[in-house]
């Protein structure tokens, strides 16, 4: 078990967004943080940049994780939206969380549905509730909301939806 966590840590430690010469952006490594499962419910939290979520999902896939859920959290003060990917392991007591943050005014990040097809619905739902765009997702039409819904109710600035009582 602990061995597996160590392997995971080293697998995520190499997950670095390379430095880019054109924008002078420095290399961003993934932040891997073990957490206390008794207090928090997960064993390992990995914080990555949106560009490498697909690689992060691939690592989880390689280790035999199953997709638990994907969700968003709105942080208006920080001007960001957080996307949280949960993975559980069907064989071991191991829970993995991958977090990433996208700017709130144009939230977009790549889809992981090619790695985990089950992510398709979770991403659609996150798009429903938060308006976060998943680039490369085949179908982002509302899943839980009505087909013509143009509102994102779990954003903190959502107030109401005007509806003519038909």
């Amino acid at each position: 078990m602990n061995e597996l966590i160590e392997q995971l840590k080293s697998a995520y430690a190499v997950l670095v967004v390379p430095a880019r010469a054109d924008t002078q952006a420095a290399a961003v490594p993934a932040v891997v943080q073990p957490t206390d499962p008794e207090r928090r419910g997960c064993h390992l939290e990995v914080t990555v940049t949106p560009a490498v979520v697909v690689d992060a999902a691939q690592v989880a896939n390689r280790f035999g994780f199953a997709i638990d859920t994907i969700t968003g959290i709105d942080w208006p003060e920080a001007g960001q939206m957080e996307v949280v990917y949960d993975f559980f392991h069907p064989q071991h007591r191991l829970h993995l969380v991958v977090r990433t943050r996208v700017p709130r005014d144009a939230p977009a990040l790549p889809t992981i549905q090619d790695v985990f097809p089950g992510a398709n619905w979770h991403e659609r739902e996150t798009h429903d509730f938060f308006g976060i765009k998943f680039i490369g997702h085949p179908d982002l039409t509302p899943l839980l909301l009505p087909e013509d819904a143009d509102y994102h109710p779990l954003r903190k600035d959502f107030t109401n939806v005007s509806r003519s009582s038909n």
Binding site: F65, A66, I67, D68, T69, F88, P90, F116, P117, G118
Partner: peptide
């Protein structure tokens, strides 16, 4: 298939 979809 269950793993890929998170079926439990």
């Amino acid at each position: 298939l269950c793993r890929k979809y998170g079926a439990t």
